[in-house]
């Protein structure tokens, strides 16, 4: 069984009389431990697709099976649990909670699992250690550089050990040096056994993936695997 299965997915926005097909009949399967890059022009539906995979958005029609379970039938409670335990989301804008320290931010997903304080602290510290920010634990987001903020966000995405990591242009707001660091971290995570799905505009970055999906106008126009000869 595949980890992710998307069948005939549409997302249509009605803007007055206009209809925007953000996703226009997407079919896609992703196996465990794959490293998939999604590329395509702006407005082609990459983020929309990613948000569907991350259970943040609901499609107009179509099916999404995660671990062979039909997500559309899930209650709010179960969906929250999926977002909490199965998916780690890394955003272009970091999306950290501004009032909390780095440690507080990383602890947050563990809090929602119902873990006790001690355990939670421990897990969060380990995750921060993994991204090399042990010495910045007590800093708030506005006291950290962009690269550091994104590393906190990665720690937050990792802290519950989710099988799927989603990254929507994680280097889009970073200078090239920090961007390289973040990409190194993400490729390392893939090598450590995570399934990684990454949106990027940078063909250099896309090359690091095993598989590249090319989106255009809400459709997958090409799906290439490394070593398949293209």
């Amino acid at each position: 069984m595949s980890l992710i299965e998307i069948k005939d997915m549409y997302k249509i926005y009605e803007m007055g009389s206009d209809k925007v097909h953000a996703l226009d009949g997407v079919n896609l399967t992703i196996e465990e431990k794959e490293f998939v890059a999604i590329i395509g022009p702006s407005g082609s539906g990459k983020s929309t697709l990613m948000n569907m995979i991350g259970c943040l958005d609901t499609p107009t029609s179509g099916k999404y099976l995660l671990d062979s379970e039909d997500i559309s039938k899930f209650s709010d409670r179960r969906l929250a649990k999926v977002r909490n335990k199965k998916i780690g989301f890394i955003f272009q804008q970091f999306n950290l909670l501004k009032k909390m320290t780095a440690l507080g931010n990383v602890e947050r997903p563990v809090l929602y699992t119902g873990c006790r304080r001690q355990e939670r602290r421990q897990q969060a510290k380990e995750a921060l250690d993994m991204v090399g920010l042990t010495d910045r634990m007590g800093h708030k987001p506005n006291e950290l550089s962009g690269g550091q903020q994104q590393r906190v966000a990665i720690a937050r995405a990792l802290v519950n050990n989710p099988p799927v990591l989603l990254a929507d242009e994680p280097t889009g707001n970073l200078d090239s040096k920090s961007g390289d660091e973040i990409m190194k971290m993400i490729t390392d995570l893939h090598e450590a056994g995570n399934t990684v799905i990454l949106i990027t505009h940078d063909s250099g970055i896309a090359e690091k993936a095993d598989r590249v999906l090319h989106l255009s106008d809400g459709k997958i126009v090409s799906d290439t695997r490394k070593g398949s000869g293209i």
Binding site: K81, R83, N84, N95
Partner: peptide, 16 residues
Amino acid sequence: TREIGVEKAIGATRRD
């Protein structure tokens, strides 16, 4: 609102 979105993205339920 954005903060609520983030909380939901990392696992907050409606009840939370």
